[in-house]
């Protein structure tokens, strides 16, 4: 199994487990602390997570869109270099070129990259994306 598929399976596994736990513990402060600490500890080294609190990794080929210098969440800008590198950081591969390549390898979420992502809620910065996401689904 390749890395992208492994990340995808891990995401699905966590989604299953946390969907049971978060509705019960999501508003408890120690649990919130635990989630924020774990997300920071895992997602920062793996994906360069910036703790925006609204994780969409599974919709972007497991490449964090916040790594884009323009923090674009809906696809690449028109300034990508002909070698596929970033307009602003010429030595870095465009986040969205990687996201596009990776998403084609995903089993369940390969089409999610086509979805429109809403504007970021900056007031959620530094909070747990899992609690925000599952909590929101429960509310609606």
């Amino acid at each position: 199994m390749n890395k992208i598929r492994a990340f995808e399976s891990t995401y699905l596994f966590c989604l299953k487990i946390l969907s049971g736990i978060i509705p019960v513990l999501g508003n408890k402060r120690p649990f919130m602390w635990f989630m924020v600490t774990s997300e920071k500890a895992l997602k920062k080294p793996l994906f360069g997570c910036q703790m925006c609190g609204q994780c969409i990794l599974h919709s972007t080929g497991m490449v964090c869109p916040m790594g884009c210098p323009k923090t674009l969440r809906n696809g690449p800008c028109g300034g990508v270099r002909s070698n596929g590198n970033c307009e602003i950081k010429p030595d870095m591969k465009c986040v969205w070129v990687r996201a596009w390549d990776n998403s084609t390898q995903m089993a369940v979420f390969s089409d999610s990259i086509k979805e429109i992502q809403p504007q970021l809620d900056h007031s959620l910065s530094g909070t747990s994306a899992w609690i925000n996401d599952i909590g929101k689904k429960n509310d609606s």
């Binding site: 210098p69 323009k70 923090t71 674009l72 969440r73 809906n74 696809g75 800008c77 028109g78 300034g79 307009e87 602003i88 429109i116 992502q117 809403p118 504007q119 970021l120 900056h122």
Partner: peptide, 24 residues
């Protein structure tokens, strides 16, 4: 449009906003 990054222009020391992207 998304807009060019500030590094492209003549005020590269400016703070870029990018609160929204072209789709949002």
């Amino acid at each position: 449009v998304t807009g060019d990054g500030v590094q492209t222009g003549d005020h590269p020391e400016a703070k870029p906003v990018f609160d929204l992207d072209s789709v949002t």
